[in-house]
Design a protein around this nucleic acid. Structure first.
Lengths: 182, 182
DNA sequence: CATATAGTTCAATTTTTCTTGAACTTTGGC
DNA sequence: GCCAAAGTTCAAGAAAAATTGAACTATATG
């Protein structure tokens, strides 16, 4: 019974009346492949693993929530990559889980609001780097007086630039989000 | 004669009166190490090789233009990395070459204006990706009609989102630079 | 409570990317 | 024009990152 519900909800191949066994999943359509490819490229620009781009791309195209196994098998990636990729995507809130009645498994959908996607990415990947940099800059200021007096002034000025850059970058983040909202 | 000029201009160790031979370069100071470390980390966030961060960091700290050999030897990196790193940094205009009278070698200084740094990076690394994405999206629109008619409408809408995102991102770039100027 | 299913973890492996250095090209100076 | 110094290129090796899959944990269900 729960198996029936699952198949009706999740699996287009249920139309073909394939019974329990190892269910056949449709291969990626050309459009899906192309969308996934775009996200894989984007992932690489953002310094994220290919598998993260693949998973997000697949969910982006999906008409209904997909479960773990469907993601893994349609993309032909391993359990490990699927698990870690989904975890990352959930962390940055690029993907959320959906409750499906009568099915024990997690189901996933892509966040489709650019604003939320960006916010998650900035918060989880960029902000930590900037905050870490801020700490390092504070330490650096302690270190500066040890320098040969001649260079000291100019170096101090340059380290000052660095602090300004860091501050500017942190100030930029909320503006970026505001721009995206507009 | 030209050797003398070179030493006066470039080499702190000329003060110690070391003759031609293999010139001794001062090791990195703690401050230099720390600044370089910050730039190496930043390079990694931006998906650039460590050596690029090292070279920029060294030049960022330098009181006078450095030549190829000084960069290579103070950072203890190879000729190849030095050459490729400097080329990249020149491409994005993070580093410029300076003419030093009586010295055949190129001399390098760091661009210290965050605005110019950012502009170069966005132009050389981000914009090409966005333009490539734009092309791919155009192709994708051709591909769409081939889809099962049921999904077609929704998928089309989603691909439409992608185009909007791409446009928004391209619109964001000049805006980021304006923010940095402020 | 026992069992089977869902999902996580992580050490080993594969893949990708960066670095090295030797051979090559280019150029300035004599 | 020739030589030596400056810098580039690129194939091979080293290092870093992603992926895999087997062992594990957790938990719904009967």
């Amino acid at each position: 019974m729960s198996l029936n519900i699952q198949k009706e909800v999740d699996s287009p191949s249920s139309l073909a009346g394939i019974p329990s066994g190892i269910e056949r999943l449709p291969p990626l359509t050309p459009v899906e492949q192309e969308v996934i490819h775009i996200f894989v490229q984007t992932a690489q620009v953002l310094g994220l693993p290919k598998s993260v781009g693949e998973i997000y791309g697949l969910l982006f195209c999906a008409m209904e929530p997909l479960n773990f196994d469907e993601i893994m098998r349609r993309l032909k990636i391993s359990k490990g990559s699927t698990s870690q990729g989904l975890r990352f995507l959930r962390n940055i809130q690029a993907v959320k889980t959906i409750y499906v009645a009568g099915d024990r498994r997690d189901h996933f959908v892509a966040e489709l609001q650019l604003r939320n996607l960006s916010a998650g990415f900035l918060r989880e990947r960029i902000l930590p780097h900037l905050e870490n940099g801020q700490e390092r800059l504070a330490n650096l200021h302690e270190l500066l007086p040890q320098n040969p007096s001649e260079n000291c002034k100019i170096l101090e000025e340059r380290v000052g630039y660095l602090s300004t850059w860091n501050k500017k970058a942190r100030g930029l983040l909320p503006w970026v989000l505001k721009f995206i909202d507009s």
